[in-house]
Amino acid sequence: MVVLTSSTREQDHGTRRGAGSFFHAAAFHPIVRHFAIFAVLIGAWEIGARTGTIDPLVLPAPSAIAEAMWRLFVTQRNIWWHLLVTIGEVLAGFTAGSILGIGLAIVVGLNPMVRKLLKPYVIVLEATPRIAIGPLIIAALGFGWSSKITIVMLVCFFAPFINTLSGMLSVNEGAYELFRSLRANKWQIFTKLMLLDAMPVIMAGLRLAMASALSGALVAEFISASEGMGVLLKRYTASLNMASAFGCLLTLTALGFAIYRTMEAVGNRIVFWRHAPQMDAVSRRRQAQWQRNWGA
């Protein structure tokens, strides 16, 4: 069975360039370098927009975008509510979808019978582009929150479901044999072995689900809604207020980045045994705990 993984940037450590290169001189510390390049780009863009080389309807000037964002967040403050609505849809849909996905996968994984019965439906659902169900759901549930959350839930359901199932079905053979020889019952095999053994794959599924949750919520809002970032973005582009539209886009980028980083941090904590720094910390913590409770 296929395991879905997000392309992770976990192994980035230790890939820095070798010493001695020109760019490694103290003045070109990577951060300094990034800022320099960034400033040059923004400067060129600003000049291009002001001299009319760049059509502001295509790409508004950085200063215009900054001004629009100031308005959105500080003076008019109209973006906050929409942002909150979208975040709410993402969180609720993600939670519901992943609980449903993981829960169903556990039921299916533990029962070969159910697995056989459900398999065709799962395949059909996998083959259907989930977003295409969107208008149908809106027709059924109306324009409000519940339809948005349902769409996000559907978008979020699949990766955790597939990954949990495949993680449970590919449980370590030797460890399974060990549990059997210890006469462990099904519940113990499930809680002490299968679930934890599958945890890295489940987390990868959750990361993917979270990444698609934001897109799902936005598309649902594009289809039909009265509030949310998708609505705001559509409204600004329709009225050709491109600076504000870009402000919304930047905000969404920041939100996506925050979501990615949060999921990464949570994942590293849960699957601590795959991340050396976390593992050291947990090891020390358990040692301290043991010594407190049971002595040296």
Binding site: G174, A175, E177, K192, L193, L196, D197, M199, W273, R274
Partner: peptide
């Protein structure tokens, strides 16, 4: 067994 089959967590 030949492989230690320890639980990583």
């Amino acid at each position: 067994f030949q492989r230690a089959t320890l639980l990583d967590w």
